[in-house]
Write a protein that binds this DNA or RNA. Structure first.
Lengths: 174, 174
DNA sequence: ACGCAAGTAGAGTGATCATTCTACATTGGA
DNA sequence: TCCAATGTAGAATGATCACTCTACTTGCGT
């Protein structure tokens, strides 16, 4: 069932986001997914795969929450992206990026690294397209990453700082 | 002995930086510290304290590597800070900030959170002072955090982007 | 009705690992 | 010279935990 797969992925994402990657036992993950241990292992054959399934789910949710239905005017889209990243941090994650956290928890996993790079590459390229700042894709990524990591420390002030950096960048590009 | 304490802290920092916070067993940490298990536990009474000792050591090393002996001219100091952060990433850390990684590995530790905040607050305030951009401390923190997280993905290009953001920021502040 | 496909519940297993404990070695000061 | 402090080496211990297995239930197509 596709139902089962997405129910499990969503539950896993919630569990890892709330409690980190090290702490939850597979039995905790089973509770979060709302299925039996046997079924959980049928759809997701190891704990490492549970991490990947959770991140796959988050990737999709993040992209649609940040980039769907942005304003057409590039200046407005830029501010809106940073505002949405701030709101994402406020409601979904109290501490940093879940992809970086997963890699930090298991730095030797090549699959995890690959997923992180795919996620960030897509975020950067969509941001470049929506803001019309294609010549400054790396700068946009730096701002988004910085906002994400600074949020747990500075809160809303980080989003305001990101917007000001976006304006400064646009001006300096002429 | 003060010797023993700093030898142990340095070894622990090396081990956690190389292999993450989850993987190394206490016996691995003992090997990295170069002492016996008994002595290790005498100076650092639990694995959680070993993480804190490693981070304390890193905090000092990071501050002195990034901020010691900066140029007096604010423009030059700004570029130099970003260049040094890039060089730190290149030689010390392949993936992200060790403090964020530690918090991600154990999100419930209040001591770890406190240490992260103290570290970032000091980085931000020293950067603000050295660059003469005291009015934009949060922007500086966003750039440094962004550079640190984007480095594993973009490499040296992240440092160049950070420098351009620094210039744009200085211009926009008039 | 029936039987299979797919689910639940939860006990068992084997490995790993933080922490403690026992036994021994060294060293420097009185 | 002796002892007390501080170190090394590494074997128990006890808990946790990923993963497997057994036994039972349910719903659907024919």
């Amino acid at each position: 069932m596709a139902d089962m797969t997405s129910k499990i992925s969503a539950g896993l994402e919630r569990a890892f986001a709330a409690r980190g990657f090290a702490e939850p036992s597979v039995e905790d993950l089973r509770d979060a997914a709302g299925v039996s241990l046997r079924t959980l292992y049928k759809y997701v054959p190891s704990r490492a795969d549970m991490v990947l399934a959770a991140l796959e789910n988050r990737h999709q949710r993040y992209l649609s929450r940040i980039f769907d239905g942005l304003p057409d005017v590039p200046e407005d889209a830029t501010d809106e992206i940073f505002a949405r990243v701030g709101s994402w941090m406020a409601t979904e994650t109290s501490h940093g990026c879940l992809f970086h956290a997963a890699v930090a928890a298991d730095p030797n996993s090549a699959r995890l690294r690959a997923l992180l790079e795919r996620h960030k590459a897509e975020v950067a390229s969509r941001a470049a397209a929506a803001t019309g700042l294609a010549a400054a894709e790396t700068e946009l990524l730096v701002i988004i990453e910085g906002l994400t990591q600074a949020w747990p420390i500075c809160g809303e002030a980080a989003a305001e700082a990101a917007k000001r950096l976006g304006h400064a960048l646009r001006i300096s590009l002429g």
